[in-house]
C-alpha cells in the first residue's frame, strides 16, 4: 500500500503543494462555466503551470509521489467540477426547453392502398387462416366455363347479351369468379379449399349501387363429408370477422344454377344492431351473399365422384362490403381515384 504523504509536510521542491491545492480548489469552486474550468485547468495543470514545472524538476522520489498525488487530486477535482457544471447545464436545458407538443410532425410521404385491395386482403387472410388457397382466375372466359360448366340452363337470363358482355358467341367477360372454381377442380383432385377474388363484368347501368365492373370474392370447399352446416359455420365466421364478433347471421333458402341447396346469407345490421335503420331497410338484416352446396352436375363436369365428395361454394361482392362497412355512398366513387377518398383508408 502506498503511503499517503502528509499534507502539512508537503512543501516540496519549489512549490507549496498545500497552498497550490487550496488555491486550485478555491478557483474551481468559483468556476461557473466550462470555460472557467478550462482556465483553472490551464493555470494549475497546464504545461506552464507551477505544478508541471515542479514535476519536471523534481529529483527525489518522495517529492515526485507527493506532486503526482496533488496532480491526480486536482485532475479529479476538475473533472468532478466539469461534470457538475455540465449536469447543471443539462438540468437547466431540461427545465427550460419545451415544445408545443401539438405542433405537426415531420412526416414521410405515405401512399394508400385502395379500399377494395384492403378488403380483398382481409378476405384472403381470413381464408388463408382457415387453410384455403387463393386462386387468380382469368377474366375473359368461354361460355362453357362461365355458363355450361356452372349448370346455367339454356334461356337463363345471364346468358343473354342484355346482361352479359360478349366478345363473340362463345366468349364473355366473366360474370362471376366461379369459372376459376371449375378450372381448379379440373386441374386437381379433391380436397379443394380455395377462394378466388377479382373483377367481374355485367351489363349493368352504373348508378350508386351498380357498376358494370365490380369485384367478387368466391370460396369453394370440396372434400369428403362437407356439409351445409360447414357452409353456414364458415359464413358465420366470415361475417363475424368482417363485421364484428357480436354479429348474428341468418340464412334463407334461395336458388342458383350452380348450387343445390342454395342459401342466401344475412348478417344482423352492424349500424343499428338489428333495431332497424336505412342501411338494413328497417329489417335489421343485411343480405351479404349467395351460397350453397355444389350442384352434383358441376362435379360431373369436372369428373369428381358426387357420391364421394360434397362441397360448398359462396360468392360475395367486395364493393358491397365497402358500402356496408365503410359507408361508401356511391360505388362509382371507388373508380374515380379521388385522393380525398383514397386517402381516408
Amino acid at each position: 500500500m502506498q503511503r499517503r504523504p502528509e499534507r502539512d509536510l508537503a512543501r516540496v521542491a519549489a512549490v507549496d503543494a498545500a497552498a497550490l491545492e487550496r488555491d486550485a480548489l478555491a478557483a474551481l469552486a468559483e468556476a461557473e462555466t466550462a470555460d472557467d474550468v478550462e482556465r483553472v485547468r490551464v493555470e494549475y495543470l497546464g504545461r506552464k503551470s507551477a505544478l508541471k514545472l515542479a514535476l519536471r524538476e523534481v529529483r527525489d522520489r518522495e517529492t515526485g509521489i507527493a506532486l503526482n498525488t496533488l496532480r491526480e487530486t486536482l485532475e479529479a477535482a476538475i473533472d468532478a467540477r466539469e461534470a457538475e457544471l455540465s449536469r447543471a447545464e443539462l438540468d437547466r436545458r431540461l427545465t427550460e426547453e419545451r415544445v408545443d407538443v401539438t405542433m405537426p410532425g415531420e412526416r414521410a410521404l405515405r401512399g394508400h392502398l385502395h379500399l377494395i385491395t384492403q378488403i380483398r386482403r382481409e378476405f384472403e387472410d381470413i381464408f388463408l387462416g382457415l387453410g384455403y388457397t387463393v386462386v387468380d382466375g382469368r377474366e375473359v372466359e368461354t361460355t362453357r366455363y362461365n355458363f355450361d360448366a356452372l349448370n346455367f340452363p339454356p334461356g337463363h337470363p345471364s346468358r343473354s347479351p342484355l346482361q352479359t358482355l360478349f366478345l363473340d358467341d362463345e366468349t364473355v367477360l366473366r360474370t362471376e369468379t366461379s369459372p376459376a372454381q371449375i378450372r381448379t377442380m379440373e386441374a386437381q383432385e379433391p380436397p379443394v379449399y380455395m377462394v378466388s377474388l377479382g373483377r367481374v363484368y355485367r351489363r349493368d347501368t352504373p348508378d350508386a349501387t351498380h357498376s358494370p365492373t365490380f369485384h367478387q370474392a368466391e370460396g369453394l370447399a370440396v372434400d369428403e363429408g362437407i356439409t351445409l352446416a360447414d357452409l353456414l359455420g364458415t359464413l358465420d365466421y366470415l361475417c363475424k370477422q368482417l363485421f364484428g364478433s357480436d354479429r348474428k347471421t341468418d340464412f334463407r333458402t334461395h336458388h342458383f344454377p350452380f348450387t343445390e341447396p342454395s342459401v342466401e346469407a344475412y348478417v344482423s345490421c352492424h349500424l343499428c344492431d338489428g333495431s332497424g335503420c336505412t342501411v338494413c331497410r328497417h329489417s335489421g338484416w343485411i343480405e351479404v351473399g349467395g351460397s350453397g352446396m355444389v350442384d352434383p352436375n358441376l362435379f360431373e363436369f369436372v369428373g369428381y365422384d358426387p357420391e364421394r365428395y360434397t362441397g360448398f361454394a359462396f360468392g360475395w361482392g367486395l364493393e358491397r362490403i365497402a358500402v356496408l362497412r365503410h359507408g361508401i355512398p356511391d360505388l362509382r366513387e371507388l373508380w374515380r381515384n379521388d385522393p380525398r377518398l383514397l386517402g381516408q383508408f
Binding site: E124, F127, L128, G129, L130, G131, Y132, T133, V134, P191, Y193, A221, D223, G225, I226, T227, L228, A229, D230, L232, G233, T234, D236, Y237, T249, F251, R252, T253, V263
Partner: peptide, 20 residues
C-alpha cells in the same frame, strides 16, 4: 330445417393455405 342447421367448420384434414 334450415333454421336448425348447426354452424360447423369443415374438418380440413388436408389443407395448405398459403399465397403463391
Amino acid at each position: 330445417v334450415l333454421d336448425h342447421v348447426p354452424l360447423t367448420l369443415p374438418l380440413r384434414r388436408h389443407v395448405r393455405g398459403r399465397l403463391s
